[in-house]
Design a protein around this nucleic acid. Structure first.
Lengths: 158, 158
DNA sequence: ATGCAAATGCAAATTATTTGCAATAAGGAA
DNA sequence: TTCCTTATTGCAAATAATTTGCATTTGCAT
């Protein structure tokens, strides 16, 4: 059912997230900060760049990494994630369940709809909401640096 | 500078948050679920109802509680917070620092604008944003149970 | 006032994440 | 390529936040 007017939101779609994370630019940028491009780091960066199941937490990243190289350790995963976050390459999200989840920080900003039953995370983006946020902040005398919007909900029964 | 049209947002103002939490209504409601109104519970509810420094975490609530009754324990604080949350009386927020912070859930829902320089938290509410959120969720096949919107910003230089 | 289930306090367990340290391995220099 | 320096790793142990088991206490309905 198509609405006659354009939707005021869009599902986020990253046409080329992979190249943004998994490329020489990032690796070089990291190298230039004095960081060494080690095997575990390359692996973790690849995993983060893999589309598919989004927003893995540290343990999930660790599990995926172990599959490809059983010698990797959890602390290294944490250390690499922290490094990438400080570098601005990924973003850390704190959801209510206690764990932190990570995702590439490139691409346009988007918000999250979390399925309370399955834990699935749907990304969307709404121009209107962004504009409203800015307007509100402006009238309160503020300039938005970044924001976070999370909707928690359940599938409506068909 | 007043706009000719009504603002689409409002600063949240709880004229009487205290009575909402610290009153017989809540106590009776709790009693009716089979819960017992114990001394520690009354204390914690009072502390949460106290305005002033908002969004305390569990440890902070515990510290304040101990001041008034040194026999109280941290687990009881956690257990009471969980109970109140399940009852819908308070809301739990997970900020990025790992800890969870709590605040009364009564009154209308509101969102947060966080001053990145001072850490000040300004509460506001926007009907329009709420509606947009629901619309988006609906079109994605979801029903919103609750949400969280945080704007991080800096004061615009006069 | 009395009894019983709910709630408490304590200590110990969990869960997520971090840190100390000896061993390993990037990657620039020779 | 080999060597050297030092960042990084893996392991085990440490933290930090929160939860749980259990014996004891305490609301509160009778």
């Amino acid at each position: 059912m198509q609405s006659p007017v354009a939707n005021d939101y869009q599902l986020a779609s990253f046409t080329d997230m992979t190249t943004l994370l998994d490329n020489d630019e990032l690796l070089n940028a990291l190298r230039q900060t004095g960081a060494r491009i080690t095997k575990p780091r390359k692996l973790i960066i690849q995993i983060l760049a893999d589309k598919g199941d989004e927003h893995p937490d540290a343990m999930e990243i660790f599990r995926r990494a172990v599959r490809r190289d059983s010698r990797i350790s959890l602390p290294t995963v944490y250390r690499t994630l922290k490094m990438l976050e400080e570098h601005g390459a990924i973003q850390k999200h704190a959801f209510v369940d206690g764990r932190s989840r990570y995702e590439p920080a490139d691409g346009p900003h988007h918000d999250h709809l979390i399925d309370m039953d399955t834990g699935a995370v749907i990304e969307f983006q709404s121009e209107k909401i962004e504009r409203l946020q800015e307007e509100i902040a402006r009238e309160l005398g503020y300039e938005i640096v970044h924001h976070r919007l999370e909707l928690y909900g359940r599938k409506t029964k068909a």
